[in-house]
Design a protein around this nucleic acid. Structure first.
Lengths: 140, 140
DNA sequence: CAGTATCCAACGCGATACTG
DNA sequence: CAGTATCGCGTTGGATACTG
């Protein structure tokens, strides 16, 4: 049986939309998208592209501290395959390739960056909460 | 040299805050937080807890389709250690344990859910964009 | 019910080397 | 510059079995 995941949203019964049932089901394609977007390097690449508008491969390598060539390439391929990023190669020597967000990618990037910003802004609150005994060991 | 990551935000030089430099540096503690929050099951657990207010272990297992006991336990420990989730155990037989968001956890959960909602709402747009030839193969 | 412990398979991911 | 190819280790993470 084919699920209604790939149907236009308007044709999906409203009852199945009311509350997120999609991501919670293991076989929903949205799990894949979520995986790419929230992957270790996916988040950071989207953040950078949102700021920079357009970036070369080596720019991204430098900005995203710690990423290897392999993982950067793979991450960019995922994001491109999902329609979030466009790759443009200029036919010159030495090679020149640009990456930029699509309109769709711009939207996810904003979501992701919003989360990232929250973490950065609240980092000290989080680190404080961390060291606490985690409480709740006290039985009720 | 100790970085200023753990200092209260007010004491950090403004120049280092202007644009997110934290998550982009490999050794920033925020990377860890991001990892927990955007982990495969972390996202889904936060979503459920945001909706349900309070949940038992087995509730979460059932709602988060596909998660194993091991990974659910580990994810909850991460989120609890970061101060996003509280674990409350009632001393009865059979055992009864509740999980709920802290105020801090509520804030991240909203961020994460916002991203998740975006994906669910735009899934059909994404799946459409996916099949396209990814364009950009055309040299410029 | 709410986990922990153990084993093991899959793969995420970095290091290195090579190519157009 | 912008990658791909290959190797290999460490971690992730599922399945199963056991415990308070």
């Amino acid at each position: 049986m084919k699920s209604n995941f790939e149907l236009p949203i308007e044709t999906v019964p409203l009852s199945e939309l009311v509350r997120r049932g999609e991501l919670l089901s293991a076989d929903c394609p949205s799990r894949e998208v979520l995986k790419h977007v929230t992957s270790r390097w996916g988040v950071l690449v989207l953040m950078v592209l949102l700021d920079e508008k357009t970036c070369r491969f080596s720019d991204l390598r430098r900005k995203v501290d710690g990423v290897s060539e392999k993982m950067l390439a793979q991450t960019l391929q995922w994001l491109a395959a999902d329609g979030f990023v466009v790759r443009t190669s200029y036919d010159v020597v030495p090679p020149h390739v640009d990456y930029r967000l699509t309109p769709l990618g711009d939207e996810v990037a904003r979501q992701v960056s919003s989360l990232a910003d929250w973490i950065e802004v609240n980092l000290s609150r989080i680190l404080s909460a961390r060291t606490e005994p985690a409480n709740a060991s006290g039985h009720v």
